[in-house]
């Protein structure tokens, strides 16, 4: 309101445009685009979900099979994001810091899980880790069953999520100031200490971003998972599959109800990660 009244009082001195104009059109387009592409579908989803009513919502969130799917989906997604974060940071580090033959090829390979149709990835992984697969058979002899268990879901999610961490962290590794590491070394810090106290805090915002992206992707992943998961209710059934099943039974209200619940949890997790990042930025006096 104060902006409006100030404008009314001093009509000539509108918002100062700054040397680089473009805020108005850019903001307008952003809001329009975000509204059309993101918010509108979500609003429709929420509106469809209201059809179930409060009792329906309660039934959904207390259905043991759906609760189990919640645990499987978010549990495996979280685990996959954690594992991808560790190895993704390592991969980004090796790809940027060292020069070795085949580096560019390896760098290009990282994006493959992005480009591959997820069903292709799922079928490949299922045959590889299946009871007769190249990896599945020896593992089975060791007593580890991968395909058709939550472990299989984890393998698929790790596969599809890896590029997110690598690509988020890589630019920051490139920009890392070597002199900062050298300063730490001259001050007597060990290499491990330098990595922990100097390098990782610098990479932290990108690592968090990569984690969030991997997690979000993993929660919504469908194609690569269903082939390897076995989809046993209460054990290896993921939420997107539950939604698809509801849709196939023409239970649109049930499907949207599960979807909205899933969306809320995901949104809460992503918001929390964003808040952690914002806190970090403020503390470090940049951004």
């Amino acid at each position: 309101m104060s902006i409006l009244t100030a404008q009314a009082a001093v009509p000539r001195r509108r918002r100062r445009a700054g040397a680089l104009p473009g805020f108005g059109p850019a903001m307008g387009f952003t809001l329009f685009y975000l509204g059309l592409i993101v918010l509108f579908p979500l609003a429709v989803l929420a509106w469809r979900a209201t059809g179930t009513g409060a009792a329906g919502a309660a039934r959904i969130v207390t259905d043991p099979r759906i609760l189990a799917a919640f645990r499987v989906s978010f549990g495996t997604a979280f685990a996959a994001a954690c594992i991808d974060t560790v190895f993704g940071v390592l991969l980004a580090w090796v790809l940027t810091r060292y020069r070795f033959p085949g580096r560019r090829l390896l760098d290009a390979l990282v994006d493959l899980p992005f480009a591959l149709p997820t069903a292709v990835a799922g079928i490949a992984l299922a045959s590889l880790y299946g009871p007769n697969g190249w990896l599945g058979a020896p593992l089975l002899r060791l007593g580890v069953r991968v395909a058709y268990t939550p472990l299989g879901i984890l393998v698929a999610l790790i596969f599809v999520g890896l590029p997110f961490v690598v690509r988020s962290v890589q630019p920051l590794v490139v920009d890392l100031d070597r002199e900062v590491e050298e300063a730490s070394a001259t001050l007597g810090a060990s290499r491990a200490r330098t990595l922990r106290a100097v390098v990782l805090p610098t990479l932290a915002p990108a690592v968090l971003t990569g984690f969030a992206l991997t997690f979000a992707r993993a929660v919504g992943e469908y194609g690569s998972v269903i082939f390897i998961a076995g989809n046993a209710p209460y054990v290896s059934e993921i939420l997107p599959l539950v939604i698809v099943q509801r849709l196939e039974e023409y239970d649109y209200a049930g499907a949207t109800g599960v979807a909205v619940a899933m969306l809320l949890v995901s949104f809460a997790v992503l918001l929390a990660i964003n808040l952690v990042q914002a806190f970090g930025r403020r503390r470090h006096g940049h951004g």
């Binding site: 100031d177 002199e179 900062v180 050298e182 300063a183 730490s184 106290a197 100097v198 805090p201 610098t202 503390r283 470090h284 006096g285 940049h286």
Partner: peptide
């Protein structure tokens, strides 16, 4: 030359 301070 460019300080190399730990900015965090």
């Amino acid at each position: 030359q460019h300080y190399a301070l730990f900015r965090h």
